[in-house]
Design a protein around this nucleic acid. Structure first.
Length: 287
DNA sequence: AAGAGGCCCTGATAGC
DNA sequence: TGCTATCAGGGCCTCT
């Protein structure tokens, strides 16, 4: 489940591999992702150079030489694989289309470069590709989202005023991309544990000190996860097919029934549903 | 306006 | 063994 850290891990390695390279061919095998891939998609990308591989929230942003942007969202189960071709004969040699490192099914989109190609695989097809025509459209799209935890405007004042009179529980807000961008279910659970905040608590009851903790711990968890290559619960892998390591650092996620990891806390981790998402917490130390 | 709930999709796993 | 049910969950949608 790619959240901000997983997408950032993909961005970093993609950037190393495809920046400044020219897209030689685009193959779309299945246009029916969450958003339908338009028929002119291939034409817009072919013969364009990748100027930059950026990211906002859980979106990858390919900046192309014809000044358009290709947004990629990995949804729940999207992965990007890299397949090398040192002989640079991708366009003529079909055998590379069946690399042993590549899953056999659900390889929906490929971008082919001279010496390598990237392959988008997504069993559940919750991910999507979207063409953004120009910079102002990109800005407009991003403006509908809340800040990332790393941005300076994501501070205790912003959080506290956002939560004013809000009856919904705090966990729902951490997952609300209009409030804060990039946090998904795993990291929402982990952040609230570090903050000692019960996920069911109404947002309006979060005090300013706790807002400060939310700022600090969101940044801490996400940065730590990026450093460790993201989390691999079920399907996340980086572009080399390697798993991340942050799942080893989970304090609450998928730990229901196990001892609370907080020093001197005798609680057991509980699992309950909030808006149909698994919520893990310790009711002894998260108040 | 805010909040609750449904839906898209496939694969892994549990239970009978 | 093979069937069915459940769960995983990001983001968008509708309804109240």
């Amino acid at each position: 489940m790619p959240e901000l850290p997983e997408v950032e891990v993909v961005r970093q390695s993609l950037c190393k591999k495809i920046r400044h390279k020219k897209v030689k061919k685009v193959i779309v095998r299945n246009r029916n992702l969450r958003l339908k891939i338009p028929l002119n998609f291939e034409k817009l990308l072919i013969n364009q150079k990748i100027i930059k591989v950026d990211r906002f929230s859980k979106y990858l942003i390919l900046h192309l030489s014809n000044s358009i942007y290709c947004l990629i969202h990995l949804g729940m189960s999207g992965t990007i694989h890299i397949i090398y071709n040192k002989k640079k004969n991708f366009l003529t040699n079909a055998s590379f289309y069946h690399s042993p490192t590549l899953p056999k099914k659900h390889n929906h989109v490929e971008f082919i470069f001279d010496d390598l190609k990237i392959v988008y695989n997504d069993p559940r097809r919750f991910g999507f590709f979207q063409i953004i025509e120009n910079f102002s459209s990109l800005q407009k799209k991003i403006s509908f989202f809340g800040p990332e935890p790393f941005q300076s405007i994501f501070d205790s004042k912003y959080i506290h005023s956002f939560f004013y009179k809000k009856e919904k529980n705090i966990k729902n807000f951490l997952l609300d991309q209009k409030f804060v961008s990039g946090i998904g279910n795993i990291y929402a659970n982990e952040i609230l544990f570090l903050c000692k905040i019960n996920p069911f608590r109404k947002a309006r009851l979060i005090n300013i000190q706790e807002c400060k903790k939310i700022v600090k711990n969101s940044r801490k968890i996400l940065l730590d996860a990026i450093k460790k290559g993201g989390s691999s619960i079920r399907d996340f892998k980086n572009i080399k097919g390697k798993k991340g390591n942050f799942q080893k650092s989970f304090k609450v996620y998928e730990r229901n029934g196990l001892n609370c990891k907080r020093l001197n806390c005798k609680g057991l981790i509980k699992k309950k549903n909030i808006s149909n998402r698994s919520t893990f917490f310790c009711d002894m130390c998260q108040k």
